[in-house]
Design a protein around this nucleic acid. Structure first.
Lengths: 120, 120
DNA sequence: TCGTTATATGGTTGAATGGTAATATAATAT
DNA sequence: ATATTATATTACCATTCAACCATATAACGA
């Protein structure tokens, strides 16, 4: 890993901030299978037009997607599919966390059960 | 990659939101080399006490770090070093983006140079 | 017990930002 | 030229949240 200087770190934080909004992740998922224009993205995400447009601008400025006007409509496509590698890693972490929690829960319920047995 | 249902996606967004704050990334970096107590983290990050405490709580609740009281002080440690794999991927993406931009800049300056030559 | 140190919490404030409606711009067709 | 469709922008509101101050809690020593 590169040295995480404060400057670099703030860029990383900014990157994560772009990905920290559900609507924007939905937009990214919408174009995961291939380029789509704004109308198509609106349909798939069920977000408002101005809203989608703003999010697309933010994603474009962050370099996560690229903009391709074609005729009257504008197509957007993923600039770096690595984004979904990030999502995969996060999902794995979430999964592990859930497993730990459910394990703790079952341990807890077992101990409660044992305790109640003692009472009898 | 698992199917990114809206529910799962919102969890992923939440995860990224935790990582989207410079102060919290600084805290994570501070304990990257090993567990540290709150005072040590304050010193390393130069953040206020209440501030650090709140960020530590957020990171703990998100499952990114774990809390270990020892005597009068409380030590925190990374719960999942995978976090820095995320940072590495992001850094690579940022680097690529910068390279593309600098390439475009040099292309631009070259074309400007050629144009000015034509003028002569 | 009392004081001290370490950490956590509550309250407040200001800045950032997502959503939406209204409007602007751009491209195409009639 | 004008209407129409697609996209972008602006203005506004509501919410979120980081930073800070003050205060509370907890652990330990004198």
């Amino acid at each position: 890993m590169p040295t995480l200087t404060p400057t670099l770190l703030s860029h990383v934080a900014e990157y994560f901030k772009v990905l920290s909004e559900l609507s924007r992740l939905q937009v990214l998922c919408a174009i995961k299978s291939g380029p789509k224009n704004v109308t198509e993205i609106m349909a798939e995400t069920e977000l408002g037009q101005a809203n989608v447009s703003k999010h697309l601008k933010i994603l474009t400025q962050a370099g996560l997607i690229s903009r391709h006007p074609r005729g009257v409509s504008v197509y957007y496509e993923l600039a770096d599919p690595m984004i979904f590698d990030l999502c995969t890693l996060v999902c794995q972490s979430l999964e592990q966390r859930l497993q730990r929690q459910s394990q703790q829960l079952s341990d807890l319920s077992r101990s409660v059960f044992v305790e109640s047995e003692k009472q009898v």
